[in-house]
Design a protein around this nucleic acid. Structure first.
Length: 280
DNA sequence: CTACCATCCTGGTTGC
DNA sequence: TGCAACCAGGATGGTA
């Protein structure tokens, strides 16, 4: 379940291994993930150098020295793992391998295969079908309550559901949507368009703060997630509400046995966690 | 245009 | 203990 903070943590771990390095080999171990690998994928990246490793929303973007960019999305169970050398055996669900001129190997491992890899020209990358409709980057300086309010205009769905729509704001997933709503004191069931100027300001700031704290903690390790060096993030220890049904939220002095504590509801088919006392 | 639902996939957990 | 049912969920593509 890599969301923006997990992808950013992986990017930071991969940068020293990939940036400025030449790919001397690549291995593709199956025909497709969520969608097919690009035609001739291993041959097309072999011999290329990685100019920069960037991130857009939950996508990793590796700019190559031939004007192409490799896009990788980790889906829900995808990992990028660094090996000091090419492993002599692959594990189940190791789908692609990148070998650098230092002899290191980066393995794309994705049991559920909701991830994908594609190649597209760096020039005009923002028009790639997977990127074209993405909303604002929440950690960019231009992100604000005003920008968020624009994205929520006309939306009658609950604010929690709207926050998961990557066209509204790019990079939030189920965990950080719940956490950001808690931090801003907003009831996840409120209609998105009715949050108001002041609420959008608080929410935009909460989104930014939660994501930054999560990145500082190396992401959240639940089930599948590992950083590129194999390490675990620890932001899950800082969850205020996510996966904490029935427990006291950090800012409530009420005992769970009195108030019921954090509540779990289902919105758009996904779990939402919130504190009814703190979120209105 | 928005909303809603099914779909993809595997592994871990729960319930009998 | 075994096994089936269920759940986790990012994104898309279909239909209403």
């Amino acid at each position: 379940m890599p969301e923006l903070p997990e992808v950013e943590t992986i990017r930071q771990g991969l940068r020293p291994v990939l940036e400025g390095r030449r790919l001397v080999g690549a291995i593709q171990r199956r025909a497709d993930l969520r969608r097919p690998f690009p035609d001739g994928f291993p041959e097309r990246i072999t011999g290329r150098s990685v100019v920069a490793l960037r991130r857009r929303a939950k996508y990793l973007l590796a700019d190559l020295d031939d004007g192409m960019t490799m896009l990788a999305h980790l889906g829900m169970s995808g990992r990028m793992l660094i090996h000091a050398a090419l492993p002599n055996a692959f594990a189940d669900h190791d789908h692609a391998v990148f070998i650098t001129d230092e002899g290191k190997a980066v393995v794309f491992h994705d049991p559920r295969r909701f991830g994908l890899i594609d190649l597209a020209p760096t020039d005009g990358l923002e028009r790639h079908p997977l990127l074209a409709r993405l909303g604002p980057e929440p950690l960019d300086p231009g992100f604000s309550g005003r920008v968020l309010a624009e994205g929520l205009e006309g939306r009658r769905s609950p604010i929690k559901v709207a926050l998961l729509d990557q066209r509204v704001v790019a990079g939030l997933g189920n965990i950080y949507a719940s956490e950001a709503l808690y931090a801003s004191g907003i009831d996840p069931s409120r209609p998105a368009a009715e949050i108001g100027t002041e609420g959008c300001g608080r929410l935009a700031e909460a989104i930014r703060a939660v994501l930054e704290r999560a990145i500082a903690a190396g992401g959240s390790s639940l089930r599948d997630y590992r950083a590129a060096d194999g390490s675990l993030g620890y932001f899950q220890l800082g969850f205020a509400v996510y996966d904490r049904e029935g427990r006291a939220c950090p800012d409530c002095d009420c005992a769970p046995e009195v108030s019921g504590g954090v509540r779990r509801i289902v919105q758009g088919g996904r779990a939402t966690f919130f504190c009814p006392r703190r979120q209105r």
